[in-house]
Design a protein around this nucleic acid. Structure first.
Lengths: 198, 198
DNA sequence: AGCGGAAATTTACAGTGGAAACATTGAAGG
DNA sequence: CCTTCAATGTTTCCACTGTAAATTTCCGCT
């Protein structure tokens, strides 16, 4: 039983997800197609319809998987008694590492119309990622006001900073001489040093 | 002369750009096609080849236009004697407004493989945007170190924050109760209040 | 044994981008 | 004026894509 190796092919859903992921990172978004995936898996090109419905469904499944892995990357290899600094560092470095290892997938994870963004499973995984970041931001502490008084500003600010950095780097929008020896760990304190006048 | 209304159609390049922009925001990235653009403009579907080469060329031209408009939005309606706060506010609000008014284009502006990202014109416009943000970050001032000593950290950090916020908002990745009455103007000082331990 | 339904295939079709050959037009130069 | 010529568009064709519909295969169940 176990719902494994369900039929003819045996776990075609997983096989398709794997093939799509590999094609995505090898040939980019424009090089990904249902028919290529089907050929790689060794199955007819309409087979995925049973499992994903259509292309948007397949991409949604991939993206959902992506958010799940992203959350894992942020909490990987953490001993239970890790201190504040260690947890922050792991989360930030894990986030950026995921984006750099899966740049095309990462881009797809913020697409507006290729993915059904109101899919319940997807929304749950997105929420899980947000929670991890929210915990980190709570651990960071704030100079002014409690977390409640911040009214979510800190969480929104933190995700904005990390996502922006991740995508600008993977999209090649920073010149190399701007990025020499710079990591996300330098960026966060740099913004903390901003002198605003209000 | 003036290189205007150059041939049969008269300024087909501009017409195509306009049509593509409108289709892009109306139907999203997936709904944009050369043939639809051509039909709107009233021309054969291979006509754009002379002006853009291929689809990537058209998208590159649109994205280049986008960066140019983004830079304009950040400096619009600014009197020459505007003070530091006014300039910062205008730039940040202008940036977010552009993203919200052109969400699909904004997404495309950070695509990895739909656009030829090493196009010289495109790189120049990207650089122009970065300069505007760099100036703003200089105007902000920093608690520690000069701009040079910061070694570009501040510029990288600022663009990361603003881009992240823009895309997360337009991609609908923040829940609405997190965003109630929140604007980019609240986010920047919130990050400045981060208490890091190094 | 045979029924039922899930899983996969076959077939067909409309839409897409691109290449190649051809047609049209305005401008430049004798 | 008339010819060339190059730029601009069109026609035609092709390979590829996603999707729908009808059909077939095969396992589990009674």
């Amino acid at each position: 039983m176990e719902a494994e190796r369900s039929y003819h092919h045996g776990n075609l859903r997983e096989a398709f997800l794997d093939a799509a992921r590999r094609l995505l990172e090898r040939d980019g978004l424009t090089g990904l197609s249902l028919r290529k995936c089907a050929e790689v898996v060794g199955v007819s090109h309409t087979a995925p319809k049973n499992h994903f419905g259509n292309m948007a469904g397949l991409l949604t499944a991939i993206v959902t998987q992506g958010y799940s892995e992203l959350a894992q990357m942020m909490t990987a290899d953490l001993p239970a008694d890790a201190d504040r600094d260690r947890r922050r560092e792991t989360a930030l470095l894990g986030y950026i590492a995921f984006a750099e290892q899966n740049p095309s997938l990462y881009e797809l994870m913020f697409s507006r119309d290729r993915v059904v963004n109101d899919d319940p499973d997807l929304m749950r995984q997105v929420g899980a990622c947000f929670v991890v970041l929210a915990d980190i931001s709570t651990d960071l502490g704030w100079h002014q006001g409690t977390v409640d008084e911040m009214n979510g500003k800190g969480q929104v600010a933190l995700w904005s900073l990390v996502h922006g950095y991740a995508q600008l780097v993977t999209a090649g929008r920073f010149k190399k001489d701007n990025m020499k020896g710079l990591s996300i760990l330098d960026i966060l304190p740099a913004l903390g040093a901003i002198k605003t006048t209000d």
